[in-house]
Design a protein around this nucleic acid. Sequence first.
DNA 1: AGCGGACATCCACAGCTGTCAATATCGACA
DNA 2: TGTCGATATTGACAGCTGTGGATGTCCGCT
Lengths: 133, 133
Amino acid sequence: MAIPTAPAPPAAAAARPEAVAACCAPLTREPLSAGAASDLARTLKALADPARLRLLSLVAAHEGGEACACDLVASLGLSQPTVSHHLKVLVEAGLLTRDKRGVWAYFALVPQALNALAAVLTVPTAAPPGGAG
Amino acid sequence: MAIPTAPAPPAAAAARPEAVAACCAPLTREPLSAGAASDLARTLKALADPARLRLLSLVAAHEGGEACACDLVASLGLSQPTVSHHLKVLVEAGLLTRDKRGVWAYFALVPQALNALAAVLTVPTAAPPGGAG
DNA sequence: AGCGGACATCCACAGCTGTCAATATCGACA
DNA sequence: TGTCGATATTGACAGCTGTGGATGTCCGCT
């Protein structure tokens, strides 16, 4: 473990969800720095779980684009604390937003976060005629 | 969508890299089945590691689109067994191909795998015209 | 054939992660 | 104010994962 990057607290990730995809350069343009790779991996780790993927799709497919936590618990077949934990991970990764109304908590997708992630992963299949610099 | 959660051995994943993104439906179209979520998570887990992300970018950014394992070991600052392990994970996930020439092993990107992944994650931000359904 | 180098595999270990029971917190309501 | 219900947090634990040292395997060279 020789990652000399700044030890930012995990809560900071939620404060800057735009850090997900940095700026623009796809994964394949130039070698990732250790810090950039760590940032990107943190977001991907939030995605790389069956329960969280299902949560995202449940929220996204729900009418109105948002879903109540109680619905998610019922749909997932996992315990309520476990679902709450997964939702927290997704919110802190900037992939979901949480809106608490009364006793209910509603979660909605953050499309730009997923799209930024998709943009980073996209590979230019056709080589540009101008040649790479 | 009745993905039967077949307990296929991990080696089978390399034989069907197109299984990464199933068919076409983005994550946000309809709730993922447990099997589909598990499949997608498996591929994302292969990506969700700083060392493997750097490996992918190193390979992709290397001239000729492929890189020798020795270069990767030198660039990553990790031990040779560790790099070999990460490369194996990426190959088994269908994200890299391995081509052994003599004593050297060359690794190349599988653009379609990453692009399929990106397609799954992409969220349609604008509603399709006339597609009120 | 013998040797050296490149890569893969095995083994062990520390740290992380998903899971749930128990509990705490907070808002709605009588 | 007291109770009920929804959600979040805590604590514990099993299983997974990243890592490196030691070793095996295979190829090229002398």
